[in-house]
C-alpha cells in the first residue's frame, strides 16, 4: 500500500517536473503587453514588408535591432498620422526618448547567440521565432532551450534553406528528400559550421 502510494506520488512528481520545469512550459507563450500595439501580421502578412526594413542590421550584427521610431515615421508621418494608437511613436520620434518595448526572446547572459551568422547561412527567422508574420502580438513561440539549439546544430541540413527565402515565413521545401539534399549541398558550399563544442555558444 505504501509502495503504491509512493510510486504514485513519485511518478506524479517526476511527470510534473518533466512537464513544467522546462522552457517549453515556462517560456513558450510569453506575450507581454507592449507599449505600442504593433502588429507584425498587419505589416508583414498583409502589407508584405520584409523583416529587414525594420530589423535592418540583422545581417551584420549579432543582435537583431529594434528599429528607432524615426523609422516608423518614414511611413507614419503620413499613414495614420493622427491615430491615437501611434501617439507614443510620434512622441518618441520627436523627443528622441526610446519606446520601452518589452523584450520577449532572451537567451541567458552566458549564451552568445549571433543573428547574422544564422540568417546569412540559410537559417530563417521562423525557425526560432515561429510564424511571427502572423502574430498580432508577438509571443514566445519556441523554447530556445539548449536542446532546441542542439537539435538543429546536429542536423542543420533539415533547416537550411535558399538564402533568398530567409525572410519568407511561409516557405516550405518541396519534399523532405529534396530538403536533405539541398541542406547537405548548402553545408558544403556555404561552409556551415554548426558547432557543437561548448565555447561556440558559452564564453
Amino acid at each position: 500500500m505504501v509502495l503504491t502510494g509512493g510510486l504514485l506520488v513519485g511518478g506524479a512528481l517526476v511527470a510534473g517536473a518533466w512537464y513544467y520545469l522546462t522552457p517549453k512550459y515556462s517560456r513558450v507563450g510569453y506575450k507581454p503587453i507592449q507599449p505600442v500595439a504593433f502588429s507584425h501580421n498587419t505589416h508583414v502578412n498583409q502589407l508584405g514588408m520584409d523583416c529587414r526594413y525594420c530589423h535592418n542590421a540583422v545581417e551584420q550584427s549579432w543582435y537583431s535591432n529594434l528599429p528607432d521610431s524615426a523609422k516608423c515615421m518614414n511611413c507614419h508621418n503620413q499613414v495614420l498620422k493622427d491615430d491615437p494608437r501611434l501617439a507614443l511613436v510620434r512622441e518618441s520620434a520627436a523627443t528622441g526618448q526610446p519606446i520601452p518595448w518589452v523584450q520577449i526572446h532572451r537567451v541567458p547572459d552566458y549564451v552568445y547567440f549571433n543573428h547574422s551568422v544564422h540568417v546569412t547561412r540559410g537559417i530563417s527567422c521562423v525557425e526560432c521565432h515561429g510564424q511571427i508574420d502572423r502574430m498580432e502580438e508577438v509571443y514566445h513561440a519556441q523554447p530556445l532551450s539548449m536542446t532546441f539549439c542542439l537539435d538543429c546544430h546536429r542536423h542543420p541540413e533539415l533547416k537550411l534553406r535558399p538564402l533568398d527565402k530567409i525572410t519568407d515565413m511561409n516557405w516550405q521545401p518541396e519534399s523532405p528528400l529534396q530538403q536533405r539534399e539541398f541542406g547537405q549541398r548548402a553545408i558544403k558550399n556555404w561552409k556551415v559550421e554548426s558547432l557543437e563544442n561548448c565555447s561556440a555558444c558559452h564564453r
Binding site: 513558450v28 510569453y30 506575450k31 503587453i33 543582435y63 541567458p108 547572459d109
Partner: peptide, 26 residues
C-alpha cells in the same frame, strides 16, 4: 504548455542568467 501569458517568465534557478553586463537597446 504553450498557453499565452502576460507576466514575465518565472526563473526557478536563474544561475548567472542575469549578469551585471549591458545588453544592447536595453
Amino acid at each position: 504548455r504553450g498557453s499565452h501569458f502576460r507576466k514575465p517568465p518565472l526563473y526557478i534557478f536563474p544561475d548567472m542568467e542575469f549578469q551585471l553586463k549591458l545588453r544592447p537597446q536595453a
